[in-house]
């Protein structure tokens, strides 16, 4: 309203302005809203690779009360699956039929998983279907298959929050760190897994094997 008195000036100015700005017409129209994500000055320094001393002698303890898995049998050699799942790995879906984890548009293309253990298959334990840990472990497998190892670690940690004394979950986390070539971290998790493995001899053997590989690689 207060601007009303200046309309004449403005109309004059408009003519001038059009003349002024005509030079820039060819530059195209930017989209201001989308430009907000453009510059990123975030400094991210990964804090990884904690140096640990050599492996301490570790002994097994009785397993704590497990909330899962109810084992359906002693896993034999048949239960061992290859470390790198086949390319036709089934997509993980929730019971709603929606994909649990959809790839992100912004994520870089999934790197080919670096298979550092061609002859070291991941030991798998039969899991009771429908438990939170089994659902999360399925997602862990899918993330590993996609080469997203850090995401796999995040999912394994979620499962550990629900079952903090589950030796198998600690073992899987150790295995993921091993695949990431973070060997000292892998050894730490493997030792933790051993402390919960109790009388599960098959699992104890697998953990010890992984611990040995991790310690060798860390040297």
């Amino acid at each position: 309203m207060q601007l009303h008195g200046q309309r004449l000036v403005l109309t004059l100015a408009l003519v001038t302005l059009n003349a002024c700005s005509a030079n820039y017409m060819s530059r195209g129209i930017p989209a201001p809203i989308e430009s907000r994500d453009g510059s990123s000055t975030v400094t991210t320094t990964p804090r990884m690779g904690r140096v640990m001393p050599g492996p301490a002698p570790t002994t097994s303890q009785e397993p704590a009360a497990r909330t899962f898995p109810a084992q359906t049998g002693v896993p034999g050699i048949d239960d061992v699956t290859p470390a790198t799942p086949p390319a036709t790995y089934p997509p993980v879906t929730s019971s709603t039929g929606q994909p649990v984890y959809s790839p992100r548009d912004s994520a870089p293309p999934a790197p080919v998983p670096q298979d550092t253990r061609p002859s070291n298959p991941v030991y798998t334990q039969p899991q009771e279907a429908g438990t939170p840990a089994s659902a999360l472990l399925a997602s862990v497998d899918a993330a590993i298959a996609e080469g997203e190892l850090e995401r796999a670690a995040a999912l394994a940690e979620r499962a550990l929050r629900i079952s903090p004394r589950d030796a198998y979950l600690w073992y899987r986390l150790a295995d993921i760190r091993y695949q990431q070539q973070r060997y000292t971290d892998a050894a730490g998790f493997a030792q933790r897994a051993l402390s919960f493995a109790g009388s599960d001899r098959e699992l104890t053997r697998e953990i010890n094997a992984l611990l040995g590989r991790s310690n060798d690689a860390a040297r």
Binding site: P55, E150, A153, L160, L173, G188, F189, Q191, R192
Partner: peptide
């Protein structure tokens, strides 16, 4: 995702 600070453990 930018950065994750996962569990670390050392005996």
């Amino acid at each position: 995702p930018l950065e994750r600070y996962g569990i670390a453990t050392e005996q």
